[in-house]
Design a protein around this nucleic acid. Structure first.
Lengths: 199, 199, 199, 199
DNA sequence: AATGAATGAGACTTCATTCAT
DNA sequence: TATGAATGAAGTCTCATTCAT
């Protein structure tokens, strides 16, 4: 007697709720500061039920870092390296990134923890690092395009890309607000300067 | 019976050794990942002796964050807002900052933890935040000076200052190496772009 | 709606399969070392289904010890106390016992557990103890017969019977092999000595 | 400041008390049936303190099996294979063994558990098995001596030795009393028959 | 009857802190 | 001051049992 469709959906929802609670708590309380009990309470799930969905705390942490990465990276990587007008593309990319980073507080705090202590979370770090490389590579391409077209000043592109991603994670770390607000818009224009636009 | 001078010095050294070990371990293993036993072993001090110098773990953590701040902030704040040539001053500041951040891995990883989880470490965060404000303020002044002298493009100065400090903590987070190396020099020039230099 | 004959048979088979798995596992992993999940997997039955056939773990354990006892005791007690030639009867009994004990590894390991920790499994122990008494009594009778007929030396019979059953459970404990093999035959002749045969 | 002699002695006593409690409990309740809490209570020691002396439950179990083995094996192996009068030596050996096994209930129940589930306690079994081999070997020698001198009937010696050790562990398993009593003496003479004495 | 998710009690273990020496 | 044994609270995880489907 397999599970009914309704039950299956319910379980998927439940799993997601646990994961969301875990992300929030891991982000704000840290790995050891977060107890399974807290997660269960926050997700309105019984203590033991957490283990129905995640083998152990470590796996739950890993899932908290890795699972949202798919959607997130897709959004972050959504820009065109071969754009006709690289300056406009850059502007749009920066705008989107800033707004995205403004709105995703918990997850990015979690990411910052993993990035800050790679040897403590090797599996999670591995995945993040891979994405990070991909992102920097793609940004680097767009910059090269801009330099080619003479709208960006000539400079090594990878350091700039690295600085840019550092800046993104850095502002997320430095800001305590949870949602996007006008304040974040102020960052767009100076952040663009990093790429050395020629007007 | 008062302690001899030699004993007093010895104790000061011991305390510092414990603090250094604590910083390294808190940085790499996190707060609850770091045990008093590990700290004692790393500092080559007996287990119970740690409590002779620090009341409890929390205070030791606080000291790990706060005590190095004095020297560190002095170095970071060592630039002249009223410089004759703000561009040169900026260049020197950025160079110094990058080199400084390159060389202080453990402590800054620790700082990033506190900044990322402010409500978990309120006392420590308070101090760091205060320093951060002071730093941004001072950088903002230097930028204003540059804009006044027409060597920097006009833009809101605080967002730029914030971006700059974000960038600093961000590159520290993104790099795993423990010491300054030539690689870090690549960041200086693009980081300068952030301020919108006019040549 | 009563169950069809086929269903009834199926359930009986299923119950036996669970019991067999339980015996094997209880024997090799011990009571708490054995989980319902393991039993279910081993019996190729769903987890919850185990509880359809056995109220709880304790009852399943009890059944594991008690149910096979019927067949087993029948075989063990199958010898003739009033045999014409008690020496031959003894020889045949010992041979049969050794072969039987050689072939029933799991169950006897389980029995040994219960016998070794009587106060932990009082109900199970009770039953085994009763059978044990019966067995010793019957062996004692056969010995007496032999002594009467002058083919066994005179000695107290109960201690000999007890030693004999001890020896049987002891060799089972000391041997790791699961099936009867020629090795076991070596034990027959010396075991017979226990009874003090006169030739 | 190393520990004082008195403290060291105290710790040794404490460790032994824990070990003794563990042996008793493991014997009567089994491995999983025995909790650290129970052991601590029985040894009149705080819960956490158990871990000062034994890394974890498994190690405590191993120590419970292995540490008493030294004294025990010494006593069990204390007989002379080259005795002038092997019959007398055998008689003395059996007497001593029976009395020894009568008086060491808990430890031998524990031994029986390990022997019965070797794959569950591989490390402990290893040690016991080694001792067992040594014992059988030595008994075998004494039997050979007796056969040589014509006071024991000719038969394979190893099976007899194995039967004898089986018998010893078997009677220990079958008897519930904790101390040596006259009852045990009844076993001596029939047990001797096993070796096929010629009078 | 059959299934497997849900529950929470209870086990092991770690570790900050206390304290006697 | 220095040491490390003693304590027990708190955390993770397992698993028998229940129960809705």
């Amino acid at each position: 007697m397999p599970l009914s469709e309704e039950q299956r959906l319910n379980m998927i929802k439940k799993r997601q709720k646990i994961l969301d609670s875990a992300i929030t708590l891991f982000a704000s309380e840290g790995y050891e500061g977060t107890t399974i009990k807290k997660i269960a309470e926050s997700a309105e799930v019984s203590f033991g039920n957490v283990f129905t969905y995640f083998k152990d705390k470590e796996q739950l942490f890993l899932a908290s870092v890795v699972e949202p990465l798919g959607t997130f990276s897709e959004q972050v990587l959504d820009f065109n390296t071969d754009a006709e007008d690289p300056l406009v593309e850059l502007q749009e990319m920066v705008t989107k990134h800033i707004q995205l980073f403004a709105g995703v507080k918990s997850y990015l705090t979690l990411v910052a923890q993993v990035v800050g202590q790679p040897h403590r979370y090797p599996a999670a770090f591995e995945q993040l690092d891979q994405f990070h490389d991909q992102l920097r590579e793609k940004i680097s391409c767009l910059i090269k395009n801009g330099q080619h077209k003479g709208v960006l000043m000539k400079q090594d592109t990878m350091p700039v890309a690295t600085l840019y991603t550092s800046l993104l994670i850095g502002i997320r770390l430095n800001n305590t607000d949870t949602r996007y607000s006008k304040i974040w818009d102020q960052y767009i224009s100076p952040a663009l300067q990093l790429f050395g636009p020629i007007n």
